[in-house]
């Protein structure tokens, strides 16, 4: 037995390491995720008890050499243990699980975030309470703590699924149909979400970051996010904006405060304030931006953005410097 202890401990340590982190349903930072984690632990405890009970019975029958029991007692055992007991256990488990659902789908209290699944990124539009037009963003969800926010889910071409496990469960996104959920973060922090429905060749590269903050910080963030993009401060950044516009990037991408108003690809107005580039595939750094602009499809197979590797290296570097300044 002893030689097995070390490998077993190592496997357990590796498995338990997956319980924490920014994308774990077992490390909740939202009211709904907490309910789901409780549900998981209750189910797990119940499963362990049943497993021990059944294996105990098998052990008793197989190794303990029990005395025979009467056929009537056997019938009661089989009927009671095989029919009555599971029926009641399933009834109470189903009642417990179902009774959680109304809270999980409670209506939002002010902010509405509209998330559209694209191939392969998340289009995000914030509708603060009373807003007449949305604030466009992409691949990042920012939410206030202690307030239940309404999430409206759509999809462009194929089915996706919106999953932010640290905050709540998942909800599918369908083309031509609007689904909804609501999120109630309870702790400030940074988290990671992921498309949870296979949606094509770069499905695995379709992630988003999420930030939760106090309502005051969130109000300040909304104000900053609604503002136009930063004006280039250096010659290199100014050249980058010129290249961006002259190469037609504005046909697909919008940068508010510039002539770029495209809505095909992600809004880049505050790209550098987001925690990721290309829906979680890269970071917003100059080297990553250069790599992405030069060969998007090498990073995300099937990405619709064309490669710009025909541009002089200096132009790409200038564009990367400009985009990296868009906080």
């Amino acid at each position: 037995m002893r030689p097995l202890v070390l490998p077993a401990a190592a496997i357990l340590a590796i498995a338990l390491a997956g319980c924490r982190g920014p994308q774990s349903a077992l490390d909740p930072a939202g009211a709904d995720a907490s309910s789901l984690a409780s549900l998981f632990w209750v189910m797990l405890a119940g499963a362990v008890v049943l497993w021990l009970l059944m294996n105990g019975l098998i052990f008793y029958a197989w190794r303990a050499k029990p005395r025979p029991i009467s056929s009537k007692a056997a019938r009661i055992l089989i009927f009671g243990g095989g029919v009555v007991f599971p029926t009641f256990v399933l009834f109470f488990l189903l009642a417990y699980g179902l009774s959680m659902m109304p809270d999980q789908r409670a209506p939002g209290e002010g902010l509405r975030v509209e998330v559209t699944g694209e191939q392969w990124w998340f289009r995000v539009a914030y509708w603060p309470e009373g807003a007449s037009e949305p604030i466009h963003s992409a691949n990042e969800i920012v939410l206030p703590v202690g307030v239940r926010s309404e999430i409206t889910l759509k999809a462009d071409q194929v089915i996706h699924s919106f999953w932010l496990p640290s905050i709540a469960g998942k909800t599918d996104m369908f083309p031509g149909r609007v689904t909804r959920m609501s999120l109630l973060p309870t702790e400030p922090g940074e988290f990671r979400g992921q498309c949870a429905e296979f949606c094509g060749e770069s499905h695995a590269w379709m992630a988003f970051t999420a930030r939760t903050m106090t309502p005051d910080d969130f109000a300040a963030w909304v104000e900053a996010e609604a503002a136009p993009a930063a004006v280039p401060e250096t010659d290199l950044q100014a050249r980058g904006l010129d290249v961006f516009l002259s190469e037609g990037c504005g046909g697909c991408h919008a940068i508010r405060g510039t002539p770029a108003r495209g809505r095909v690809g992600p809004d880049l107005t505050h790209l550098a304030s987001r925690g990721n580039l290309a829906a979680g595939a890269l970071k917003v750094t100059v080297p990553d931006l250069i790599a992405w602009i030069s060969h998007p499809e090498a990073i995300k197979p099937g990405a619709k953005m064309p490669a710009f590797d025909h541009l002089p290296r200096e132009d790409i570097a200038a564009m990367a410097a400009y985009l990296e300044s868009l906080e």
Binding site: L90, F91, A95, L98, S99, M101, P102, A106, R180
Partner: peptide
């Protein structure tokens, strides 16, 4: 009874 449980325990249209 199991058919009816969703309306008893999660009776919401949301």
């Amino acid at each position: 009874i199991f058919n009816t449980m969703p309306v008893w325990f999660a009776g919401t249209c949301l």
